[in-house]
C-alpha cells in the first residue's frame, strides 16, 4: 500500500491564507505620508506590517500542526538506532526494485 500523506501544498485553505497574508505584508495600501502617524515612535503602517508578519508566523504554526501529517516515521522508523548505512542502502534497493 502507498504511504499516506496530508500536506499543506494540497490544501486550498493554506494557499488562500498564504496569499491573503502575502498581499497584506506588502505595504501598498497606505497613504504616502503615513509615516506621520506614529505609536511610541513607530509608524502605524510599520506596526501593521509587523502585525501581519506575526499573523503569518501564527498561520504557519497552525498549518504545520494541523495540515501536515505523514506516516513516514511509523512506516520507516525514527532516525536513531536504524543501524548503519549499509542496511539503509539495502532498504533503498528494495524500495526501488
Amino acid at each position: 500500500m502507498k504511504p499516506e500523506m496530508s500536506e499543506p501544498v494540497r490544501k486550498r485553505r493554506v494557499w488562500l491564507g498564504f496569499i491573503v497574508l502575502f498581499v497584506l505584508i506588502n505595504p501598498w495600501y497606505f497613504a504616502s505620508d503615513a509615516g506621520a502617524t506614529r505609536l511610541m515612535g513607530i509608524p502605524l503602517w510599520a506596526l501593521m506590517v509587523l502585525g501581519v508578519s506575526l499573523a503569518l508566523s501564527i498561520f504557519i504554526t497552525w498549518t504545520i500542526n494541523t495540515q501536515w501529517q505523514t506516516d513516514s516515521d511509523e512506516r520507516y522508523g525514527g532516525g536513531k538506532g536504524r543501524g548503519d548505512g549499509h542496511d539503509s542502502d539495502g532498504a533503498r534497493r528494495d524500495e526501488e526494485g
Binding site: V9, F18, L50, L56, T70, R75, G85, E96
Partner: peptide
C-alpha cells in the same frame, strides 16, 4: 527596510511547500 523581518518568515513558508514530502521521501529512501 522593515521587509527584513517578513522575508525571514517567508523562508519557512516556502519550506512548507516541499519539506513535508521531501522529509517523507528522505525517510523512505534513506
Amino acid at each position: 527596510y522593515l521587509v527584513s523581518v517578513p522575508f525571514f518568515i517567508m523562508i519557512i513558508m516556502v519550506y512548507l511547500f516541499f519539506a513535508p514530502r521531501l522529509y517523507a521521501l528522505g525517510r523512505r529512501f534513506s
